[in-house]
Every structure is written in structure tokens, then in C-alpha cells.
């Protein structure tokens, strides 16, 4: 007997066929000018995210947890400000890095060299705030330990 390829749900097949047809209708127009460049960006964005960005931040996070050893429960105090700062850098990289500075300044009439300083200040506030929170919470916890249990 010949091996049979399972087809799967007919509804799913129809839905996906319709989806591909619409994507194809728009896709030929998307690829009309510079098909290689656009395809590179489209597939490249997915590959860059899945195979570079995601493994990179996951690995950094693992390294952080390993480095903290027994103080793992405090990971959030580093993780949260670091991730938020990295997120801002990721989104606003062209402005923060200064790579569009001259075009930005000449087009908008606004100073283009302020973004790095602002990002650094926000990063300082994020880490500083997190450090403050860590100190305050440790004190509260220590004070709670030292206080004799309340008698009811």
C-alpha cells in the first residue's frame, strides 16, 4: 500500500488557501519594484528576530540568572530596568545612535543630538529607581524579621 499523506482539516485548508490568495494578490505588488530587497527584508526580519534577537536576549537573561546564583529572586531588579532600557534603544535606535541626525535636523529644524542623552537619563532613572526599590524592600523585610511576632 502506498503511504498516504494526511490532508488535515478541510476548513483549515480552505481558509489558508484564501489567505494565501489574498497575500499573493498584495504580494506581487509588494515585490514589483525590488523583489529581492523586499523578500530579504520580509524573511530577514523573521530570521533576524527568531534566530538572533530572541536567542541573544534569552542567553543574556540566563547569564544574569546564573551570575546571581542564590539571589535569583532578585533578578527582576536588574531584568526589568535592563529590558525596558533595551526596548527603548531598539525602537528608537536611529535617533539615539545619531545615524539620522543630519537629515533629522535639516528636515525638522529640531536638534538631533538630544536623544542619546535622554535615553541615558531614562536608563539611569530606571536602574536608580530599581536600586532604590531593592534597598527599601530589603529594609522592610529585615525590619519585619527583627520585630517580635505580634501577639493577638
Amino acid at each position: 500500500m502506498r503511504p498516504r499523506i494526511p490532508v488535515g482539516s478541510p476548513f483549515q485548508l480552505l481558509l489558508l488557501a484564501a489567505s494565501f490568495a489574498l497575500a499573493g494578490y498584495a504580494g506581487v505588488r509588494l515585490l514589483d519594484d525590488d523583489w529581492f530587497g523586499v523578500a530579504l527584508w520580509f524573511v530577514g526580519a523573521a530570521l533576524l528576530h527568531d534566530l538572533v534577537l530572541l536567542p541573544l536576549y534569552a542567553a543574556l537573561d540566563r547569564a544574569l540568572l546564573r551570575g546571581l546564583g542564590t539571589r535569583r529572586e532578585r533578578a527582576g531588579y536588574v531584568r526589568v530596568p535592563a529590558a525596558l532600557s533595551a526596548l527603548l534603544l531598539l525602537v528608537w535606535f536611529p535617533l539615539i545612535s545619531g545615524m539620522v541626525e543630519s537629515r533629522y535636523r535639516s528636515a525638522t529644524g529640531l536638534p538631533g543630538d538630544v536623544f542619546l542623552a535622554r535615553w541615558l537619563l531614562i536608563t539611569a532613572v530606571l536602574f536608580g529607581g530599581s536600586a532604590l526599590l531593592l534597598v527599601l524592600r530589603s529594609r522592610v523585610r529585615r525590619a519585619a524579621k527583627q520585630r517580635p511576632p505580634a501577639v493577638h
Binding site: I5, P6, V7, G8, Q12, L16, F20
Partner: peptide, 13 residues
């Protein structure tokens, strides 16, 4: 696992 599943994975790309 099936033709539908293969197409779904392409669609996810």
C-alpha cells in the same frame, strides 16, 4: 503532521 499543518506553518512565516 498533515498538508493543512504544513500550509499553516508556511502561513506563520
Amino acid at each position: 503532521r498533515s498538508l493543512a499543518h504544513a500550509l499553516e506553518r508556511i502561513s506563520l512565516l
